[in-house]
Design a protein around this nucleic acid. Structure first.
Length: 299
DNA sequence: ACCCAGGGTGACG
DNA sequence: CGTCACCATGGG
């Protein structure tokens, strides 16, 4: 939640934000279009390019048209009470270890079609390659727009633009065997698929609709629901979360499907947000052990 | 040369 | 229903 949002001369300043760590939020693998620069984080969302800076519970976004203020507030999920979520984490002995590494993470509210294509590309892939492929896809088929200062940037391509690409073009951006999935899914959206009903259906029904897209299974469906359709109870289970839950909740034993579902239910209606904290914690911890291992090998 | 990465698909029991 | 080889690509 936040106290005040002020717009002046193309700059949006939101103050009194209780939990916000931009570094963690923008580099934790939910969005792949933000880069750290000297002027702050630069990214493109909903066709708008902007810089984002944060300090002391204050978030500044520029350039920002006045009509885009509600969208940015929604994008950074500033309406949600993250203090309550972090309190829940702190009071759970199994989850509290996540906070030092993940406090201030927010789940962004991204554009659904962009999220669909992004996470089709994410399957059996790594975050560096995913970001590269997205950037090349935008350069290849995205509209070029111009910022007020003259700087040019590429928007995420429309469904029609991606649907019009041939498979060789999609392979050229590094889509690999996912190229036909991207092409066919883009065609379905270009043909009029409507994401909006998925915001309000029962979770299982929404997931079933999304797995109708080629290249979308249960995990990618949950990513789309959590990252772009406001479903805070969608709980994507990937290799990192699987490992983390195994050690944190099941004493190193691989949980069955029913046990996993029971755990997610126990975590409550914000389980998906909590998932993001655990995911980031798991990745940071693994990274540290990798570094330690490499340094000990060097020595 | 082998393993891994925000998994999904299709074939087979 | 569950399991499993296979998928294209680049880095470690």
């Amino acid at each position: 939640m936040y106290e005040k949002a002020n717009w002046q001369n193309g700059v949006l300043t939101v103050s009194g934000i209780e939990c916000l760590n931009l570094e963690r939020t923008l580099s934790c693998g939910q969005s792949f279009r933000w880069k750290k620069t000297e002027r702050g984080w630069f990214g493109v969302a909903y066709g708008c390019a902007a810089y984002a800076q944060a300090q002391n519970g204050m978030l500044r976004i520029f350039p920002c048209a006045q009509s885009d203020v509600p969208r940015w507030i929604s994008y950074f999920d500033l309406v949600r009470n993250y203090t309550a979520i972090e309190t829940q984490l702190r009071s759970d002995a199994r989850l509290s270890a996540c906070l030092p590494h993940a406090s201030g993470i927010r789940v962004l509210n991204q554009e659904p079609f962009e999220t669909l294509i992004t996470f089709i590309l994410s399957a059996n892939n790594n975050t560096v390659r995913i970001a590269q492929s997205i950037a090349r896809l935008c350069g290849l088929a995205g509209d070029v727009a111009t910022m007020p200062d003259g700087q040019q940037y590429a928007r995420f391509p429309t469904p029609q633009a991606i649907a019009a690409l041939d498979l060789d073009a999609l392979r050229s951006i590094g889509a690999g065997y996912r190229a036909p999935y991207v092409q066919q899914s883009a065609r379905m959206v270009a043909d009029g698929f409507d994401f909006e009903p998925l915001r309000h259906m029962p979770l299982l029904a929404s997931r079933k609709v999304l797995t109708g897209f080629p290249g979308v299974g249960p995990k990618v469906a949950d990513c789309i629901l959590l990252f772009s359709l406001g479903r805070a109870d969608a709980f994507p289970i990937d290799v990192w979360i699987g490992r983390a839950l195994k050690s944190m909740f099941f004493e190193g034993e691989k949980p069955g499907k029913a046990e996993m579902e029971r755990l997610v239910r126990e975590l409550g209606p914000m389980s998906g947000i909590i998932q993001q904290y655990v995911f980031h914690y798991a990745r940071k911890k693994k990274l540290a052990t990798k570094w330690e291992k490499r340094e000990s090998e060097d020595a």
